[in-house]
Amino acid sequence: MQQSAGQRWATFDCYGTLIDWETGMRRALETIVPGNTSQLLAQYYEIEKQVEGEQPFRSYRNVLAEALRRSARSTGVMLASGAEHVLANTLPDWPVFPDVGRALSGLRAAGWKLAILSNVDRDLIAGTARHLPVVFDDIITAEDVRAYKPSLNHFRRFREKHQLADENWVHVARSYYHDIVPASQLGIRRVWINRSRETAPEQLATVELSNLLTLAPTLQQLCG
């Protein structure tokens, strides 16, 4: 157990929030099914949620492969043997959004502690972390908590580990389903990074931003 009294923490979802996972996935899929990427991705996003929710728990590497296999089958796209592993193989090199450096550097300069709560395996995010502009103070993965968001396990593990007061913690994420909803259930203040200008099913975000450019002053206002 770590005592974090008085420290301000910003936790982040990684893929979609810090990492441009749509571009990364499209580039990866174009190498195995050129011309069929959009059709495949439309199915993939929903099928991945189903696979993550199944028991027993699968590693994220296996979630990626199984979701891609099922998506290809449902859309009639043929995958070569072994092609289902392309997402896991390329994930550590998916691009960082251009606004990430300024946002994280601004938070670090203002004294914030930074953490990632992510639906991946430890080895995959270790590869991604090499490309991020700052070193994070903590990373909690699905592999650590044996569950995928929107499970509350990531958030509960982080809260227990750091013994945080709610007023010193803000969660920042793009996915309403995976992050904003569960964070709201635990009373954690949450910043929705609505990069795609989606319409929220219900107003659960504390703050909504279209990107990370004003994140540092926004969190300063939230936590003083």
Rank of each mutant, 00 (worst) to 15 (best):
M1Q: 06
A5F: 12
R8H: 12
R8N: 14
W9Y: 06
W9Q: 09
D13W: 05
C14L: 11
Y15P: 05
L18M: 09
W21H: 14
W21M: 10
T23D: 11
G24H: 03
M25I: 13
R27P: 03
R27Q: 15
A28K: 04
V33Y: 07
P34I: 03
S38A: 15
L40S: 10
L40H: 07
L40W: 07
L41G: 05
L41D: 04
Q43T: 07
Y45A: 13
I47W: 04
K49M: 04
K49G: 00
E52D: 08
P56K: 00
P56Y: 02
S59R: 12
S59M: 04
R61S: 03
N62S: 12
N62E: 15
V63H: 09
A67E: 06
L68G: 07
S71R: 01
A72I: 04
T75K: 06
G76A: 05
G76M: 05
S81E: 15
E84Q: 09
H85M: 05
H85Q: 13
N89A: 09
T90R: 07
L91Y: 08
P92I: 04
V96E: 06
F97C: 11
D99S: 13
G101C: 07
A110G: 11
G111W: 01
G111E: 01
K113V: 03
L114C: 10
L114A: 11
A115K: 05
N119D: 15
R122A: 11
A126L: 11
T128E: 04
T128P: 01
R130Q: 13
R130M: 13
F136L: 06
D137F: 05
T141G: 02
E143K: 01
D144I: 04
A147E: 09
Y148C: 02
S151N: 09
S151P: 05
L164H: 06
D166F: 05
D166S: 14
V170Y: 04
R174L: 10
Y177G: 00
S184Y: 13
G187Y: 01
R190C: 09
I193V: 15
R195S: 09
E202D: 12
T206G: 00
E208P: 02
P217G: 08
L219H: 08
Q220N: 14
Q221H: 12
L222W: 14
L222H: 07
